[in-house]
Every structure is written in structure tokens, then in C-alpha cells.
Write a protein that binds this DNA or RNA. Sequence first.
DNA 1: GTGCAAATGCACACCACTGTGCAAGTAACT
DNA 2: AGTTACTTGCACAGTGGTGTGCATTTGCAC
Lengths: 205, 205
Amino acid sequence: MSAMTTGNTSRADANRRRILDVALAELLRDPDASMDQIARAAGVVRRTVYGHFPSREALISTLVDDAVHALAQAHAAGREGVEDPAEALARSVLAIWHIADRYRLLVALAQRTVTMQGIRERLTPVRESCAELLRLGLEQGVFSSPLPTPALAYVHEQILFALMEAVNDGLLEAREAGRSAAVTVLTSAGVPATLAGALVGKIGG
Amino acid sequence: MSAMTTGNTSRADANRRRILDVALAELLRDPDASMDQIARAAGVVRRTVYGHFPSREALISTLVDDAVHALAQAHAAGREGVEDPAEALARSVLAIWHIADRYRLLVALAQRTVTMQGIRERLTPVRESCAELLRLGLEQGVFSSPLPTPALAYVHEQILFALMEAVNDGLLEAREAGRSAAVTVLTSAGVPATLAGALVGKIGG
DNA sequence: GTGCAAATGCACACCACTGTGCAAGTAACT
DNA sequence: AGTTACTTGCACAGTGGTGTGCATTTGCAC
């Protein structure tokens, strides 16, 4: 067999594609899916997968590389030739989102770690309490968002995670981070920036 | 030894505490840290850890439970007795942030999966391109945020992830999600909600 | 100092998964 | 039919972890 070094049969190509496709789906279902699970799901034997990818890491790497490449491409195409930052940002998001439809699963799979799963699950009550708060604010017109309340709650949760990560990475001063986080959360809920700043300043001062 | 079933020596308690503390730190450094690594870091033998926690999962569970409990506590205390949704939300975030200082690491550890690491690392160029866009917008006064640019870029990245997850979980219609995502990203950058909506509507229409 | 609970240091069984080797089979192209 | 490239189906070694049992030692408390 000579370990299918560089050859290109139609069959081999089709298999490679199918393996990648199935791996994407399978890894979403279970981020720790074994090579055997992936192979079986692709209707192929484990040994065959190793014929196409030298290691598990290589397989995943290929997957991620493809996704990121497509994403970067979309982002670049979206902002290309647009001078207004707001419009460029919006176009970038729309473009990314369009192609991300296919990779949404992959990118989101990152959230699905066992650990992460546990954390977010147990955090549900808190998230729901926040959702209630958001619903109230939207009704009263204090907040404003095109998102359904539960989705907005997801966003807020992730904003906090993002800023914690930013502090961990030294991008943000821990001292000021709390106030900044509060302002950012309010802002993302549609509260005008100046108002949000004033409110948090009043409380935090 | 009877496997230290329910007894309470001062020594045992101190060890238990230390194990939990060290486990928190160690799991941050490496989310897949083994029981042996944790034990050693706590100045204790692996066998001893199993004396306090029946399994690795139980240990992590305890850790997460503690963190979530403290978080929920803080959230509840923060919004208690406040009727204005905006203020309640802000207070909640501030309260959470205050105690989260200790658990920031734990909560953020979720982001540090091997897979996640790879994804975010390869996404760096895109994130930097976005950061550039944000910097420009902030300079021109189109955007507004208390956050340093790189941190804001983190936030945007996570917002997209959050909304992808929301779509996966059926909280958001995939069709509309793109436009909503764009609006949310702009809004979180301080663009007034009405402006953001109009801009995206003009583009996406 | 005696006694009890806890900690230690082995040992072991076990597991699931990875990556490789090799011989035999099978599809495709000529 | 013959050749080539890919696939299959084993078998195997290796790895790195988990959880447990047991005899021994250490520390705390009374």
C-alpha cells in the first residue's frame, strides 16, 4: 500500500473529504471523539484515517485551519474598500456569519468542553435571572436589542468571560475591569455609552 | 486507616482546603492536569487526594460548585432591592466581578481547552484586524468604550461565539442571526442602537 | 504515651486510546 | 489482465492516565 503517500485517486479524495466532513460533525457532538468514532462515522476503518492524517492532532489541525482560513477570507472581503469603521465592522460580521454557517459548529465546539459544559450548566440559574432583568429592561425601553432575551443573556455571559480572559492575558487592569465590564454589558444591551458610564460611575464611585 | 470516611482532624481539613486551592491554580495552568500533578503541587501524594475526593470528576465538581455558588450569591446580593433594570444589571456585574477575582481563573479556564487554544491562536490575525478597525473608530469618535482596544476585540470575538452557540441551541433563528450579530457588535462598541440598526439594515437589505 | 485518624508508599488491575506493521483484499485506470 | 493506489482487518506495543488495596508511618489530642 505504501501508505498512500501522495497519490490522488478519486476514491481517496472522496474519502478524505468525507472524513473531514464527518469529523467536523462528530467532534461537535463530542469534542473528545476518538479516531475510531470518527472513522466509524465516516464508514471507514480507523487505519484508513491514519492513512490520510498522520495523527489525531493533524486531522483537527486541518479542520481548524480550513475554518479559520475561510473566516479570515470572509473578514477581509467584507471590510475591503470600506472606509467607515462602523460599516466595515458590520460588513465583516455579516460576511463572516455567512460562511460561518458551515463552521459555526466547529467554532462553537470550543465551548463544549466537559468542564465548560459543567460550568455553563450550573450557571443556568444566574443566567436566567439576568435574562429576567433584561426582559424587564427591554419592556420598559431602558434596553434595546434585536436579540431575543435568552440570546442576549448568552452574550452577556460571554462578555464577562471575554473580559476575565482579557485580565488573565494582561490586556486589562484588574482594578478597573469591573467598572469597564459593567459599562460594556450595559452598552451591549443598548444603553447609550454616556448614560452607562454615568450610571456605573455613580454606583462604583 | 478506614479511608478517612467522615472524620475531622484539623490536619485533614487543612489538607482538603489546600488541595482545593492548589487544584484551582493547577487546573488553570493546564485544564487537563492529572491527579498526580495536583497532588504533587499540593505537597501530597496522589493517594491522599483520593482520600478526600473519590474521583477526579468529584474534585472538579466541588471546585465548580463552590465558584458557581459564590457567583450566584454575589449576583443575587447585587441586584437585591434595586428596581431599575439598568442599575440592577450594573450592580450585579460589579458584585460578580468583585468575588470573581478569585474565580476568574476557574471560569476562564474553560476557554483554555487544547482545541480552543488552537482556534483562538489561529484567529489572532483576524482579531488584530478587527482591533485595528476598532482603534480607528474610537479615534474618529464613531465608537465609544472604556476598554482598551485589544480587550474590546476579545469581547467582539466572544459575542460572535455566543451567538453561534445561541443558534446551535435554537435560541436564535439562523436567518436573522447575522444581522442581529452585526447590530450587537456595533452596539457593544458604543454605536447608538438606532444608528446600528439603520446601518446594518441598509447593508443587509 | 497511648490511641486514633490521617497520610504515605507501594502495588496492582484496568482502561481507552494512539500510532504502526503487515498481509490480503478491492476498486480504478490502461 | 495487469498495475497502481487505496482500503481492510487484524495484531501489537506503548502510553498515561484512573481508581483501589494494604501495610506502614506520622502527627494530633487527650
